[in-house]
Design a protein around this nucleic acid. Sequence first.
DNA 1: TCCTGTGAATTTCTTCACAGCC
DNA 2: GGCTGTGAAGAAATTCACAGGA
Lengths: 238, 238
Amino acid sequence: MTTTGEGTDQRAAPPATAADLPAATVRRLPEYLRALGALSESGVDTVSSEILAGATGVNSAMLRKDLSQLGASGMRGVGYSVAALATHIAGVLGLTKDSRVAIIGLGHLGQALARYPGFSERGFDIVGLFDADPGIIGRDLDGLPVRDVALLGRAVRDEGINIGVIATPGAAAQHVADLLVDAGVTSILNFAPCVLAVPQGVAVRKVDLAVELQILSFHEHHKTLGRSEAQINKRRER
Amino acid sequence: MTTTGEGTDQRAAPPATAADLPAATVRRLPEYLRALGALSESGVDTVSSEILAGATGVNSAMLRKDLSQLGASGMRGVGYSVAALATHIAGVLGLTKDSRVAIIGLGHLGQALARYPGFSERGFDIVGLFDADPGIIGRDLDGLPVRDVALLGRAVRDEGINIGVIATPGAAAQHVADLLVDAGVTSILNFAPCVLAVPQGVAVRKVDLAVELQILSFHEHHKTLGRSEAQINKRRER
DNA sequence: TCCTGTGAATTTCTTCACAGCC
DNA sequence: GGCTGTGAAGAAATTCACAGGA
């Protein structure tokens, strides 16, 4: 995973809530949700764990275990209600209210993120764009102006921004993270190739595009040595 | 994370090679490499596991275990040679020879990827751009023309492309993956929001930007519900 | 003394396999 | 018969803790 910022909870057993879901389960929930959306559009209204697992590349027992941990419940002999399950997962993920996102750093990647339709489609409103480069400040991206990063803290407070996406060069990323944290943001998605230091309680997820390619490079490099293991891929008719 | 394509190895013990590295270790190697590069630029030439672990956000015992599995070896009482370790890791990852990458789908995201300097900086040469949209085919991106995706198979073979990056809409992704696989590509990085079916032996890694935000949304949603967390502000370090 | 390398313990994640309900 | 929910087993990943070399 390419992720940091997880909190470790060593507190004496509190009443179990959805907040106690294993990290591995949380990672899979968005995937389930996407598959459910696709099924829903195809007019399917009930689905078995076997089918849904196939559509998301996981084992069906794991899927059932994940769902039972949510408190979601299927019907024995029948399966899960697509609509009910989607609603339930969306609720657990907190997608019932839209999040307000700021993107900091509007180079090529930041601009692509700003225009990525997948964000607004899934309830993430991009409400602020910030950069430090005077040559970029003032530009307009699909109706949103790029503002000076010096205005970031105030904007976070005034505009209810709760997620920050950092797409700056590595050298600027820590400074931006500090600004976000000081303004009260507790969720950060970091595309810069560096590890961010943040206080406990702030969640950081990191996506490094070059890292992904390097992992592929490893597989490519060692494939000749007679291995395979893709296994998620049961082959499929096509 | 938000990643797939990892293998589970249930084969009877083959001669141990670098190819048998645990998936979790492989995922961390690029991160170590990046940190080593930064140290190297700062003129540091020896580093302890404690320091390097700090720079990459992992536990020092895990770092040592990872490195010892590579066959890399440090000097007791001293640490690791930054240069030697970087060379060693790059070798294991197969970064000694440049990879040849094709990007398929040149919407906003694909264009940003095509221009992302991090790829070429780390030895990934983008040598082909492909799209199905006549309005995009023929455009020029920093000197590379966007070609018709119908030419993809031939280009893979003629130009030695060994990694495919899919940045198309979800509906087109499986078709593109099939083209890549049929042409002999065995490493695919998928940005489309769907699970790809590929034969065994093909490595697929998936990056879904919206998934990352949804995971953050979960943390955001449950942070308030989480127990008091009296000392959310442990603050410190950086 | 400082730091690596590693067995053992621990925790987390995944799969199996089957009881129970429709 | 089909399918969920789950205890128990198994595998993987992580951390501990310390022996031993420089």
